[in-house]
Amino acid sequence: MSSGQSTTAYPPPSSAPAQPPIGYPTKESPQYPQKSVVETKSKGDGFWKGCCAALCCCCVLDACF
Rank of each mutant, 00 (worst) to 15 (best):
32 Y>H: 13
19 Q>S: 14
9 A>K: 10
19 Q>F: 07
1 M>Q: 10
29 S>H: 05
10 Y>G: 00
3 S>N: 15
44 G>D: 06
5 Q>W: 02
32 Y>S: 11
36 S>A: 12
40 T>R: 14
18 A>C: 09
2 S>T: 13
41 K>N: 03
12 P>M: 03
22 I>P: 10
57 C>D: 02
61 L>T: 09
13 P>H: 00
20 P>R: 04
44 G>H: 10
50 G>M: 02
58 C>F: 13
41 K>Q: 07
1 M>H: 12
23 G>L: 00
39 E>L: 12
55 L>C: 15
12 P>E: 03
41 K>D: 00
22 I>H: 08
58 C>Q: 03
5 Q>E: 10
18 A>Y: 02
39 E>D: 05
1 M>L: 09
12 P>Y: 03
65 F>D: 09
6 S>A: 09
63 A>P: 01
48 W>N: 03
5 Q>C: 07
33 P>K: 02
65 F>V: 12
21 P>I: 03
23 G>Q: 00
16 A>E: 11
33 P>R: 10
61 L>N: 08
37 V>Y: 10
14 S>M: 13
5 Q>L: 12
51 C>K: 11
32 Y>A: 14
64 C>I: 15
64 C>T: 14
46 G>D: 10
61 L>F: 14
59 C>M: 05
24 Y>R: 06
17 P>V: 00
56 C>W: 11
23 G>H: 00
61 L>W: 02
15 S>V: 04
3 S>G: 07
39 E>C: 02
54 A>Q: 02
47 F>N: 11
28 E>S: 13
41 K>T: 06
22 I>Y: 10
59 C>P: 00
33 P>M: 03
63 A>F: 12
39 E>Y: 07
12 P>S: 11
16 A>W: 04
25 P>M: 09
30 P>T: 04
54 A>W: 02
40 T>I: 09
43 K>W: 05
15 S>C: 03
38 V>T: 09
11 P>D: 04
23 G>R: 01
58 C>L: 15
55 L>A: 15
8 T>H: 12
